[in-house]
Simulated assay, not measured.
Amino acid sequence: MALELAARRKINGATLLVAALIYGHWGALTLNAAEMPPLLVAALGGWLLAWQGSLQHETIHGHPTPWRRINQLLGCPPLNLWLPYERYRALHMAHHATEQLTVPGHDPEARYLAEHAGPFGRLAARLTATLLGRLVLGPPLEIGGFLVAEAKAALADRPGVRRAWALHLVWVAAIAAWLVGVCGFGLGEYLLCFVYPGAALSLLRSFAEHRADPEPGRRIAVVENAPVLGLLYLNNNLHAAHHAFPQASWRELPGLYARHRSALLAANGGLVYRGYGEVFRRFLFAPHDAVIHPQLGAVAPEAVA
């Protein structure tokens, strides 16, 4: 099944509103965090950082304006401190380009391990195989693993990596100056109240959106009935629709999913969850899938940007 959407050169006002809400509330929250209960700061800070991750995803796919530079400017401030925007863009577009979704060495967003993975990688994967482990231990393990991989890529001088990190560190210095110098908000507190819960919320979205299967089309899931988290994830919970219509904005995805639901679920083998409540019930204490990818021997590795 081939489903495509023609690129549309228009300005998406709803996404601009989301961007204004994110950055405006982030500024206000960081200014006032010292006077607020820490749990409230963590709840609001986590939401804002996960929401900005969803906004960054929109900008990578060409929204909310027809102008790439403006979209990049809206998405590039690294509020999470650890993920350079240009590296996210390169890795995510490689994820969409590969025909071997979920396979390590092909898909840079794969959660599975290769058979030759080391003991630390295997331990980390087992600890985060359940949803509880992913939410509690996933943020430091995910971020730490990413930083190690990026350090290796920078040392190997892979194209674009050092430049992306140089720009990223300038942004991080500016954000740190705002947090410490203007707001009097310590970086340790920021990591605990913003970065950690934000990463956990993002990992909830990604936990069940892909699953290994012999048929590539059956590797992309859908989570329906998610009015609150659907807003947080800008409808990326309708993940099969996003992969089928990668140029569609988050505002268009629900309509596209509704119109093509039968075809999308036929193509993905019915890999659908009736809400995040089902994801919690099924996987809070049970592994989502095997740790080692079951089809690794069937394909040859690709280079990933």
Score class of each variant (00 low, 15 high):
200 A>S: 15
46 G>V: 08
266 A>W: 06
216 P>H: 12
236 N>M: 12
13 G>K: 11
208 A>R: 09
108 P>K: 01
136 V>G: 00
123 L>W: 14
203 L>E: 09
186 G>C: 10
214 P>V: 11
200 A>G: 03
76 C>Y: 05
111 R>K: 12
127 L>I: 01
96 H>M: 06
93 M>W: 06
92 H>C: 10
202 S>Q: 11
35 E>N: 10
288 H>W: 14
96 H>L: 10
175 I>P: 04
265 L>S: 12
182 V>Q: 14
147 L>H: 13
155 L>E: 12
48 L>Q: 09
162 R>W: 04
144 G>N: 11
115 E>T: 07
298 A>R: 13
182 V>A: 15
146 F>H: 11
47 W>N: 05
80 N>S: 14
178 W>T: 11
295 Q>I: 00
23 Y>F: 14
25 H>Q: 10
91 L>F: 02
266 A>G: 12
85 Y>R: 08
183 C>H: 08
151 A>S: 14
23 Y>A: 04
243 H>F: 01
130 T>S: 12
48 L>R: 08
19 A>V: 04
211 R>N: 03
106 H>C: 15
203 L>Y: 02
187 L>P: 09
15 T>M: 04
153 A>N: 12
62 G>F: 04
223 V>F: 06
201 L>G: 05
206 S>D: 03
135 L>R: 01
168 H>F: 10
281 R>Y: 00
286 A>G: 00
27 G>Q: 03
154 A>V: 07
177 A>G: 12
93 M>Y: 07
296 L>M: 09
206 S>N: 09
297 G>D: 14
177 A>C: 11
24 G>T: 08
240 A>W: 01
277 G>Q: 04
88 Y>P: 01
173 A>I: 11
166 A>M: 13
8 R>K: 15
102 T>D: 11
98 T>G: 02
66 P>A: 10
139 P>W: 03
255 G>K: 08
7 A>V: 13
104 P>F: 03
253 L>V: 14
205 R>T: 06
42 A>G: 06
230 G>T: 07
270 G>Y: 08
48 L>M: 08
6 A>I: 02
187 L>R: 08
121 G>E: 15
301 P>H: 02
94 A>D: 06
138 G>M: 02
177 A>R: 13
267 A>G: 01
253 L>I: 15
67 W>S: 07
152 K>W: 09
166 A>C: 07
260 H>R: 13
237 N>P: 00
234 L>G: 03
23 Y>P: 03
116 H>Y: 02
117 A>D: 05
28 A>W: 15
266 A>N: 13
25 H>P: 00
90 A>F: 00
198 G>M: 09
87 R>E: 08
171 W>Y: 12
45 G>P: 02
184 G>F: 11
248 A>K: 04
105 G>A: 08
169 L>Y: 11
232 L>H: 01
240 A>H: 12
94 A>P: 04
290 A>L: 13
268 N>L: 13
133 G>D: 08
269 G>Y: 10
246 P>H: 02
105 G>R: 10
284 L>A: 09
10 K>S: 04
154 A>Y: 00
66 P>R: 13
195 V>N: 07
171 W>N: 12
305 A>W: 12
74 L>M: 02
145 G>A: 08
282 R>N: 06
10 K>I: 04
146 F>S: 12
45 G>F: 00
